[in-house]
């Protein structure tokens, strides 16, 4: 695999950001979606605050996990980073360049450096294209491998790197299993030599035995190609395994952010604590001894989010001030940020 990896990287441009330095910075990102009413004349009746004042950085070579329940804004954050969604406010700085200020043309080389792997291997691949075309097309468009023969060689290498038989280039997505399709999705993300990959629920749809294969593959590729990941997932066990740092989101806001070990060993925000307690561990002895803190109520609607701290209606530690004031993220231990005034 190393030899293949070497050839796969001959077209790489020299890198400006060193390992451990900031690769991506998100500053005060907001994305509101207008809620409209009326069929003929649309009236805006409110905003869905999908992402509401989110800031974090990702260092080169690290994997940042983004967790939280359905609708908390994980995918929207990812789409804003990729400029697939125009932020309502805030800045996204990638390798020192503020993406908000770039025009369409200047964005093209940036697009190449940032790729995404989606959850659903079934719908994220064009069913009418063979695997070879799915991988070859972006390379052709971005002029990465203009020569056809070389492109075919490169496709075979990419498939091999992702643990697929190069013969799969002639198959259609429906002729493959879910795990194989997800590998094609990963190969497609790699084909433009990206620096940064957003994995949006990339292993969520896979069965455990296959999921482990893909997790190991993502780890190997990270090592091999110096990749930086934003790993979006709701499965905390997978996030714990794969991520160096983790950000916990709730209703469009970051509630807690820390190194992975620190977050899982010493969760501080009451939401994070409840979330971790809700995840069952695959060991009946440990489960029998664990406290099961059940969080009451449901995630409120992002259209009319609660005042003050958005978590206050479900929070066991709530006090009056939580209903009025939005708690800022405070660094309570080194590198451990918590948006709660009561811890």
């Amino acid at each position: 695999m190393s030899a293949q990896a070497a050839t796969a990287h001959t077209t790489r441009s020299p890198r400006s950001v060193e390992k451990g330095e900031t690769l991506l910075e998100i500053r005060n990102l907001k994305k509101y979606f207008a809620v409209t009413e009326g069929v003929v004349v649309h009236r805006t009746v409110g905003d869905i605050k999908a992402v509401d004042d989110v800031s974090f950085t990702i260092r080169k070579g690290e994997t940042l996990g983004l967790v939280g329940e359905s609708g908390c804004g994980k995918t929207t954050t990812g789409r804003c980073i990729l400029q697939l969604e125009r932020p309502t406010a805030g800045e996204i700085v990638f390798e020192g360049t503020n993406l908000e200020r770039l025009d369409q043309k200047a964005m093209i080389p940036m697009r190449q450096k940032m790729q995404v792997i989606f959850q659903d291997p079934y719908s994220s691949l064009n069913p009418r294209m063979k695997v070879g075309e799915i991988l070859g097309e972006p390379m052709r468009v971005h002029g990465i491998q203009p020569d056809r023969a070389k492109r075919h060689k490169r496709i075979a290498e990419l498939l091999a790197v992702c643990g697929l038989n190069p013969k799969f280039a002639d198959r259609y997505p429906h002729e493959m299993s879910g795990g194989q399709r997800q590998r094609v999705g990963i190969a497609r993300a790699l084909c433009l030599n990206p620096d940064f990959i957003i994995c949006d629920e990339a292993v969520s749809a896979l069965d455990v035995s296959i999921q482990a294969q893909v997790i190991n593959l993502l780890e190997d590729l990270r090592e091999e190609f110096d990749l930086t990941y934003l790993f979006i997932a709701h499965d905390l066990s997978v996030v714990h395994h794969l991520c160096n740092r983790v950000a916990v989101m709730y209703l469009g806001k970051v509630m807690e952010l820390a190194e992975s070990d620190e977050l899982f060993d010493h969760p501080m925000h009451p939401y994070t604590r409840a979330l971790l307690s809700a995840v069952p561990v695959a060991d009946p002895k440990i489960e029998a001894e664990r406290q099961h803190q059940v969080l009451p109520g449901e995630v409120p609607s992002p259209i009319n989010p609660p005042s003050g701290c958005v978590f206050h209606p479900r929070c066991p530690l709530v006090v009056d001030s939580c209903r009025a004031e939005i708690p800022p993220l405070r660094e309570l231990r080194t590198g451990h940020w918590v948006a709660c005034t009561q811890v």
């Binding site: 035995s209 294969q213 395994h241 561990v281 695959a282």
Partner: peptide
């Protein structure tokens, strides 16, 4: 062996089941 576990050391490599 293939499920990642929150209560175990992070660096531990998963042992997947090969094939399908």
């Amino acid at each position: 062996a293939s499920v990642p576990r929150m209560d175990q050391h992070r660096g531990k490599r998963l042992v997947p089941i090969d094939g399908q």
